[in-house]
Design a protein around this nucleic acid. Sequence first.
DNA 1: TCCATATGTCCAGAATACTGGAAATGTTAC
DNA 2: GTAACATTTCCAGTATTCTGGACATATGGA
Lengths: 123, 123
Amino acid sequence: MDIKEALAAFDTLSQETRLRVFRLLVEYGQAGAPAGTLSESLHIPHNTLSFHLSHMSHAGLVVSRREGRSIIYRANFEFFSGLIRYMVEDCCRAEFASIRNDHKRKCSIIELSHCCQPKENIS
Amino acid sequence: MDIKEALAAFDTLSQETRLRVFRLLVEYGQAGAPAGTLSESLHIPHNTLSFHLSHMSHAGLVVSRREGRSIIYRANFEFFSGLIRYMVEDCCRAEFASIRNDHKRKCSIIELSHCCQPKENIS
DNA sequence: TCCATATGTCCAGAATACTGGAAATGTTAC
DNA sequence: GTAACATTTCCAGTATTCTGGACATATGGA
C-alpha cells in the first residue's frame, strides 16, 4: 500500500453512502451481495449506487463478480487490512502502535497503546 | 468513535495535503510542530495550510496549543488509534481482524489475518 | 506605542464530487 | 426473437471542496 492507494481508500470511506455500503458488505462476508440487494437495503437508487460501487471497486475496497443477471459485490478484506497496516506502519509512532508478523499463525499482531485513558468496555 | 466521527476522520485523511501534514506531524511526535514549520517543510501557503489544519483539528486528528507567537500542532494519536479500533470493530469481520484488550499492559491487541491464504486456516 | 512575526479569516473563482432521470448493455427465460 | 430483469453508462444540474490573495487578529519586543 502506497500513499496514493491509501488516499483513494480513505476517499472511498469518507462518504456516508459508501461507508454504509461497505459496512453492509462486511456483514455479507465472503459470499457478498448483489447490487440490487444493497440498493434495496439502503434505499439508494440503483444508478447512484452503481456510481459508488464503481468508486469503491476502483479504490480496491470491493471486488465483484457476475453471477447470472446479478453482479455480486464483496468487501475486499485483504485490502482493508492492508489499509490498517499502512495506518500503523506509516501514520503512527512506535510508542502508540506497533506491528509484528506472526509467521506461524500467518497473521500480523498490532499493539495499540491506551495512550491516555484506558478503554473500559471489552474484556 | 461513531460513524460521523469516522467519516470526518476519513475525509481528513483522504486529501493529499492533509495526509502529508498528518504524516509529518507523526514524525514530530508528542512535541508537535508550529504551523509555520509545517508550511515551510511542505511548501504550502500559510492560509491554505491553516484551512487544512482547521479541518484536521475539527475532525479530531490534531490538537493545538499556543506557544508565544506560534501555534503548535500535534497528531492526536489517541484519536487515530480510536479510528483503527473502529475499523476493526465496526468495519471488519472476526475472521480477518479481531481485537482484545490486554488490561495488564494497557493496550489493545489486534490480530490481522494474512487473508491471501484460505480463510479457514485460522484457529 | 509601534513594528515585526505568526497565524487565522474572508472571499470568490476553479475544480471536483454527488445525484438521479433516461438510455444502453448484458443475461435469462419462454 | 422478445420480454423481463439487473446493472451500468451518459449526462447535466447542483453542491461541495480547494486554493491563495487580501485583510484581520494575536503576541512579543524595542
